[in-house]
Design a protein around this nucleic acid. Sequence first.
DNA 1: AAGCTGACTATGG
DNA 2: GCCATAGCCAGCT
Length: 114
Amino acid sequence: MMDTDDHFFFRVYEVVKKIPPGRVTSYGAIARYLGSAGAARMVGWAMNQSHSHPDFVPAHRVVNRNGLLTGKHHFDGVNLMQELLENEGAIIEEDRILNFREMFWDPAEEPDLW
DNA sequence: AAGCTGACTATGG
DNA sequence: GCCATAGCCAGCT
């Protein structure tokens, strides 16, 4: 485990930045990938602080396990998150990604990341 | 220092 | 399939 602790947020950003356009993932999937299953809430917190990260972090591609845009209220515009996702091919209705299952991207199943 | 909070999730009724 | 409950972990008050 080494330095995973201090770099937890950093690692979260690294993973989020690797989410391909047109794909989305969940907080839990990221936490699990980082070896901290159950730290899904921390991933959410990391997103909350993502503006502090020097690089662009596509936080809009991270939603909860139901494909619900739980973090939309944290974006500038109320519908900014939704618009960004729709621009990438997501079909959203009432803050929920209808084709979530089809867009889902699990970092733990991506050999390229390892 | 102790308790609350939250961009979560899994489980049971 | 929807609602309530309980773990979860780190930051914030």
